Amino acid sequence: MPCGEYFTDYGSRMGLFRWRTQRIALVFGLPIPFLLPFVIGGGTLNLFAQIYIFAIAVLGLNVILGYAGEIVLAQGAFMAIGAYSTSRMLGTGAGLLPAMIVGGIIAAGVSVAFGLPAVRVKGFYIAISTLALQFIAEWFFLNDKAAFIHGGVQQTVPVDVGLLGSFIRISSRTDIYFLALISMLVFALLSLNFSRTGIGRSFRAVHENDLAAAVLGINVFRNKLLAFAIGGFMIGFSGGLYAVLIGFLDPSFFTIELTLQHYVMLLFGGLGRVWGALLGVTMVAILLDNLQEFFNTYAPDATSLIPVIFGAIIIVVLAVEPKGVLAALGQLKEYLRKWPYAY
């Protein structure tokens, strides 16, 4: 008789948490981030808040790249648009949540506009149009003559604002931490469910073979633009949160380096998977922070070696498991699920 844990109905097969180990991990693991502020503080709390914010941005990148298969090289630009738009909205007295939503909508609109070439080109060619957006955004936010639009090259973001108008004040690092955590959980849950919807399956079909998807009746161009819109909104929303976290805006925070960093996080964890994106962001952010702290403490003159060591670690991990760390953990899970028997 087969041993292990198996599905016995379609309902359990389609569940978000299908295995017993996943449900147990959720029960014991979910309270941990809510308890962290009572255990840690200072820079470590800010690091975890940044992880949650970057997780939202990488989940947005995962929608565009992992689901729809469109290469976008304007992650920094989308976050900058969301950040500066949020700052401008806060200056009008709008609440933080409406300001971030407006920032996400504007980023989504710009994302769709620069995704229009997808009607004629794909692959690396569409990546060039989004790379152009990255350079245009850097020029735009560095241009003092456009200050009447973006509000100024360098801006200070209010640290004491209401979440909805003047209600529910966000006035401390702990408040920002919980806001980032809850936002990340909401977007992660939406992403998990989105991949199981008809639109999510259409994205997958376009990703695998857009010609075959068109033959099956899927509107390829519309789905590509929809992926740009959804992903751009999530990235823009995360940019607004990031602005509130750092409390200061400068175009140097949103360069092509940020885009490449988010790509590393997504590929490191596992492309096309929500849990892979979350795992990749967490591991890469903690690794970078520990490397920075180590060199600042023991070898301050050799901090330029951090990108070299970080790149070497990434290459080794991807050489061992090209599908990311999540794929390696999946193999371990399958082994343990049937343990101690192999059949």
Rank of each mutant, 00 (worst) to 15 (best):
M1C: 08
E5I: 11
F7E: 11
F7T: 12
D9I: 05
Y10V: 14
G11N: 11
R13K: 13
R13V: 12
R20I: 06
T21N: 09
R23D: 02
A25V: 13
V27E: 00
G29T: 04
P31F: 06
P31E: 03
L35D: 08
V39D: 05
G41R: 07
G43C: 00
N46V: 12
F48W: 11
A49R: 04
I51R: 00
Y52F: 15
A55V: 09
A55T: 15
N62A: 00
I64N: 02
G66T: 07
G69V: 08
G76P: 13
F78N: 07
A83L: 01
Y84I: 10
L90K: 08
L90A: 09
G93V: 12
L97V: 09
L97Y: 06
P98H: 03
A99H: 06
V102I: 14
V102H: 00
A107K: 03
A108T: 09
G109I: 14
G109L: 15
S111G: 15
V121D: 06
K122E: 13
Y125R: 08
I128V: 15
T130S: 14
L133G: 09
W139K: 13
F141K: 05
L142G: 11
L142S: 15
N143Y: 06
I149Y: 04
G151Y: 01
P158Y: 01
V159I: 10
G165Y: 07
G165R: 02
F167P: 00
I170D: 07
I170A: 04
I170S: 05
S171Q: 12
D175W: 03
I176R: 05
Y177H: 05
L181S: 03
I182M: 03
F194S: 07
F203C: 09
R204T: 14
A205T: 09
H207C: 13
E208K: 04
N209M: 05
N209E: 13
A212D: 04
V215A: 10
N219I: 03
R222G: 07
N223E: 01
N223T: 06
L225H: 03
L225I: 14
L225G: 03
A227E: 03
F228M: 14
A229T: 07
G231N: 01
G231F: 01
G231R: 00
F233R: 01
I235F: 00
G236Y: 01
L241A: 02
L241P: 11
Y242C: 01
A243H: 02
I246M: 06
I246A: 04
D250S: 15
I256V: 14
E257Q: 11
Q261G: 05
G270V: 05
R273Q: 13
W275T: 12
G280I: 06
M283D: 00
I286C: 12
L288E: 14
L291C: 09
Q292L: 12
E293G: 09
E293H: 10
Y298R: 08
A299L: 13
D301S: 12
S304M: 10
L305H: 06
L305F: 14
I306L: 06
I309Q: 01
F310K: 02
G311R: 02
A312F: 15
I313G: 04
V316C: 05
V317C: 10
E321H: 12
E321A: 11
K323D: 12
V325D: 06
A327H: 14
A327F: 12
E334L: 08
Y335D: 05
R337I: 12
W339K: 01
